[in-house]
Design a binder for these strands. Structure first.
Length: 847
RNA sequence: GCGGGCGUGAUGGAAUGGUAGACAUAAGAGACUUAAAAUCUCUGGGCCCUAGGCCGUGUGGGUUCGAGUCCCACCGCCCGCACCA
């Protein structure tokens, strides 16, 4: 019996595609273009099984669209800057650049084994000076356009990675990569003015119809738009310069319920009072409080009465005490608020602790109302509020803003949660920020003709901190303005900058400017973008900002403000975990290849020790539940891995890698191969009924698989291919008909298992390569049968079925239904109460 | 706390408001084989003795001729954000 030998066939076809250059795309106005892109990988040096699934998805789309006649652009590159290279440098005494390029070379080979239809002629790595030099040019243009600026700010400092992190990179109070508790630090940093686009980035989310709702919602929440009132209280007993205290609120309607004013420990007023050692100590304590989930759960509301008071804007007789409070954030609004305990839970907790007045000013029904331990935050009617009494919340807000505005005390204001993007990183392995510090001229942008500012290679990692800082000569340069001795900026850019515009570089990867407008005009935008949901905010929000900034600076055409037309988030590949316990009762994790199934359970191969099987979770080095894709490819071939990772679950969901599942996929591919070989031996003449049935099945399969791929339901497409295989195997049609069906099968399988498809295509003597063959069409007329079987329900429960001609009039269907034995029996001579016929679907007899 | 999602056989999962469990995996039985592998056939939600029937999509209600699907409440799990005034 012949077997399909993936180990021989796969490299053979990869070479054939390569030599025919079938995946290289050039602008061509005669065909519609289609730009499909998967988030480019970090070159860790080792392909992960998750990569296989991710890139297989993109490849299905690319191959399918190519067969549909689209001019498909499917490029690949490397997100090559970042911490791991520096960590490796410290551990192995290897240079980050050398380490990274070695990884890229290894990984590219592993990618080749997957048979992806990639156009490698546009490849680049973000650590190439040819790439990051253009990024430096973009930076200078952003600087010129006011989109980049430098300021001193309190930043998130990761004490392990010894670098600054963006807000988006702090997760649960910890660094997103190192996991270290983040500290606050005052540093002068470079920022991108993403806040210029807060409104636009929010509003444009509505237009992203082909993005997951979840991602759009997450971005909307992150941008966090609030509408409210910003106004000033007049202060009493405050230090000089603080005659007014500006606060922000989204509930101006509750102003008459105010019983205190609160300021952040980082508020200028709080700092001005630090000459009092008690206040200094209190402020220090506030700053120390963590922001992790647990810390927030348990943190008590703490305040310090400054002795200062403010005057109520609508009631000069009323004054409110000013507290420094630990729950007020300097980074939002003005860092100062008025507290209305009745209608804000935090203020209520605070008021109860410090014995402040709790005065309800909104009542659910307009009647007198009081609040105990739970703040009332629902809709209602204003009470106890002078001129606001009887108004709705919305009307009261408008009225208060109007009066504050008229009194020149403040105005309505929209505030966003989104802050500007701090991009300075105190790291070596990143894109140098192209500015110069000159004693005479200050901060001077580097001249564009001096770009790229190239990273030095002779660096050492024997000490913590940024090697660029202690490099003997690299910092030294001439001031671009006055020519005197000056020093380079040693901070490099956040690696998220690198990935914020790579998609725009691919179409013109050789251009001597960051982009080429003609190429961008042809290829942009990305029609289908695929990647993990972990980038829902960081990468995707930054990219949306970058596209706008690049339009403003003339690097992209106007149509590119939303660079990703459609987004798909794929799930992860998981595996169950295996553990034993050490002598102290701590778990010891074992990798799947150390495990054997032995009669009644899983055992450790070496010692026979029984294994505890844990839940299937994301593959990770620490839990050792990792499956090496290269071993799988070595054993079964890339097609099997591609087929299996897409077969069982919807692509957006996590899947569990199981050995039995992978073997089953491999068996199935062997079965298809065998069938292709055997159709040659079929009887030359089959039954004509069988031939017609097979033809209809074929058209049905084309329709279903096409719909599956179009709808990103690869698992369903694969289920339909199984059905088609089963039907073809059982078919009694003749040789020619079976071969025709087999050819269609090959075309339908080709996006998923391209190598096997090519091998069968060649075996059957078909012309050219299946990779370049057009997608098969189906005839809608072939999808309908002449007779259909309709279930009959009695009172909604299925009781019988009848087979009737397709276009039988409704009245005839009713007659036949009433003549059905089960119906006659159930009716027992009575007329039905109701008879529902849904044409082509179902009949329901109501008794 | 706020926001979002999801609960279907032993398992992964199908199912425009219209025959629940497609397709696959595990498992069981059988065929072929000296034997194993490979391959093929059958069984494959639960219950009742069968024809056949009853029950069944987290729980309880509701809308409907008809609900896994829509609505309400509850329970459980997952994800995101989190003292944002």
């Amino acid at each position: 019996m012949t077997r399909y030998n993936a180990r021989v066939s796969e490299p053979k076809w990869q070479k054939a595609w390569d030599e025919a250059q079938v995946f290289q795309a050039k602008p061509d106005d005669s065909r519609p273009k289609y730009y499909v892109l998967e988030m480019f990988p970090y070159p860790s040096g080792k392909l992960h099984i998750g990569h296989v699934r991710n890139y297989a998805m993109g490849d299905i789309i690319a191959r399918y669209k190519r067969a549909q006649g689209f001019n498909v652009f499917h490029p690949m590159g490397w997100d090559a800057f970042g911490m791991p290279a520096e960590n490796a440098a410290m551990a192995n005494n290897a240079l980050p650049g050398v380490w990274t390029h070695k990884n890229i070379a290894e990984m590219k080979e592993q990618f080749a084994a997957l048979g992806l239809s990639l156009d490698w002629s546009h490849e680049f790595a973000t650590c190439d000076p040819e790439y990051y030099g253009h990024q430096q040019a973009l930076f200078l243009d952003f600087l010129d356009a006011g989109l980049a600026y430098r300021k001193s700010a309190s930043v998130n400092w990761d004490p392990v990675d010894m670098t600054v992190l963006a807000n988006e990179q702090v997760v649960d109070g910890k660094g997103w990569r190192s996991g270290a508790v983040v500290e606050r630090k005052e540093l002068t940093q470079w920022f991108f003015k993403i806040s210029d686009y807060s409104d636009e980035l929010l509003d444009a989310l509505d237009g992203l119809k082909n993005w997951p709702d979840k991602v759009r919602l997450m971005q909307a929440n992150w941008i966090g738009k609030s509408q409210g009132l910003q106004f000033s209280f007049e202060t009493k007993n405050a230090p000089k310069g603080f005659e007014a205290l500006e606060v922000y609120t989204t509930r101006p309607d509750t102003l008459f319920g105010a019983s205190f004013a609160g300021i952040s420990a980082d508020h200028p007023l709080a700092k001005a009072l630090e000459s009092d050692p008690k206040i200094a100590a209190f402020n220090a304590e506030c700053r120390r409080t963590g922001t992790s989930a647990e810390a927030l759960e348990t943190a008590e509301k703490l305040g310090y009465d400054t002795g200062i008071t403010v005057v109520h804007p609508f009631d000069p007789a009323k004054t409110l005490p000013v507290y420094i409070a630990n729950f007020i954030l300097m980074g939002y609004g003005t860092g100062a608020v008025f507290g209305c305990p009745a209608h804000d839970q935090r203020d209520l907790d605070f008021a109860r602790k410090y014995g402040l007045e709790v005065r309800a000013v909104v009542s659910p029904d307009g009647a007198d109302f009081s609040v105990q331990n739970e703040a009332f935050t629902d809709d209602g009617t204003l009470i106890n509020s002078d001129f606001l009494n009887g108004l709705s919340i919305d009307a009261a807000k408008i009225e208060v803003i109007k009066r504050i505005d008229a009194a020149n005390m403040g105005a309505g204001k929209t505030v966003f949660r989104l802050r500007d993007w701090g991009i300075s990183r105190q790291r070596y392995w990143g894109c140098p920020i192209p500015v110069v510090h000159c004693d005479a001229c200050g901060i001077v942008p580097e001249n564009k003709e001096n770009l790229p500012i190239i990273l030095p290679e002779d660096v050492s990692f024997d000490k913590p901190g940024n090697p660029l800082d202690r490099h003997p000569t690299w910092r030294n340069c001439a001031c671009p303005k006055c020519g005197t001795d000056a020093r380079r900026e040693t901070d490099t850019m956040d690696t998220f900058v690198d990935s914020s515009w790579y998609y725009a570089r691919f179409p013109s990867s050789d251009a001597d400017t960051p982009t080429n407008l003609a190429d961008a005009d042809y290829w942009m935008n990305v029609d289908q973008y695929i990647g993990g949901v972990e980038h829902a905010i960081l990468h995707l929000l930054y990219s949306r900002f970058f596209a706008r900034a690049m339009i403003k600076t003339g690097h992209l055409p106007d149509k590119c403000s939303e660079p990703f037309n459609a987004l798909f988030n794929q799930g992860m590949v998981c595996h169950e975990t295996y553990s034993t316990l050490d002598d102290k009762g701590r778990p010891v994790w074992h990798s799947p290849d150390e495990i054997v199934v032995d009669g009644d359970g899983y055992k450790l191969r070496e010692t026979g020790e029984a294994i505890t099987i844990g839940p299937s979770i994301k593959m990770s080095k620490s839990k050792r539940n990792v499956v090496d894709p290269l071993e799988q490819i070595e054993q079964y071939g890339a097609d099997t891995a591609r087929w299996f990772t897409l077969s069982d679950s919807p692509p957006e969901r996590d899947i569990e890698w199981t050995t039995s599942g992978a073997e089953a996929a491999w068996k199935h591919l062997q079965r298809v191969w065998r069938m292709a070989v055997e159709t040659d031996d079929s009887a030359a003449e089959g039954s004509s009924d069988a031939a017609l049935t097979l033809e209809k099945t074929t058209h049905r399969a084309i329709a279903d698989v096409t719909a599956g791929i179009e709808g990103f339901a690869f698992n369903k497409a694969i289920a339909k291919l199984y059905e088609f295989t089963n039907a073809l195997q059982k078919s009694k049609a003749g040789k020619a008909e079976k071969q025709a069906a087999m050819r269609v099968m090959t075309q339908l399988m080709h996006p998923i298992t391209p190598h096997l498809a090519e091998e069968i295509w060649a075996l059957m003597g078909a012309k050219g390569m299946v990779t370049t063959a057009p997608w098969p069409d189906f005839d809608p007329a072939m999808l309908v049968d002449d007779s259909i079987t309709m279930p009959i329900q009695i009172n909604g429960k299925r009781r019988s079925e009848i087979t009737i001609p397709k276009d039988l009039p409704k009245s005839e269907v009713e007659k036949l239904a009433l003549a059905d034995n089960a119906v006659i029996k159930a009716l027992a001579g009575n007329a039905p109460k109701k008879l529902i016929v849904v044409p082509g679907r179902i009949i329901n007899v109501v008794i």
